[in-house]
Simulated assay, not measured.
Amino acid sequence: MPTNLLQLDIVVPVLTYCALLWWVGRGMSWTRRLITAAVTLVLVAWIVLAERGWR
């Protein structure tokens, strides 16, 4: 695994998510945007833990 500080497999999805959240959340309040971001991060963490076998 390369030890690059800039890993595109992490950066590109994060930027895409931010752009999508901005586009979808144009009519949303900041509170609702933060809740959406938090729920998404929890789901991502849960999926990563499930893939790694809860270790």
Rank of each mutant, 00 (worst) to 15 (best):
P2D: 10
P2Y: 01
T3H: 15
N4I: 13
N4F: 09
L5I: 10
L5C: 08
L6A: 15
L6W: 04
L6G: 14
Q7R: 14
Q7E: 11
Q7D: 15
L8G: 06
L8C: 09
D9I: 09
D9V: 11
D9M: 05
I10D: 14
V11F: 01
V11Y: 02
V12Y: 04
V12W: 02
V12G: 02
V14M: 13
V14E: 08
L15H: 04
T16A: 14
T16L: 10
Y17N: 03
Y17V: 11
C18T: 12
C18H: 14
C18P: 01
A19F: 05
L20N: 06
L20T: 11
L20H: 08
L21I: 06
V24W: 02
V24D: 03
V24T: 00
G25C: 01
G25K: 01
G25I: 00
G25S: 04
R26V: 11
R26G: 07
R26W: 05
M28V: 01
S29V: 05
S29K: 03
S29A: 08
W30H: 13
W30Y: 07
W30S: 12
W30Q: 13
T31Y: 13
L34K: 03
T36Q: 04
T36K: 01
T36W: 00
A37Q: 02
A37I: 08
A38Y: 14
A38R: 04
V39W: 04
T40Q: 04
T40L: 07
L41I: 11
L41V: 15
L41H: 00
V42F: 15
V42M: 14
L43A: 12
V44Q: 02
V44T: 12
A45Y: 10
A45E: 12
I47H: 08
V48R: 03
L49C: 14
L49P: 05
A50T: 13
A50K: 14
E51C: 14
E51R: 14
G53D: 00
G53C: 07
G53E: 01
W54K: 06
W54E: 13
W54N: 04
R55P: 04
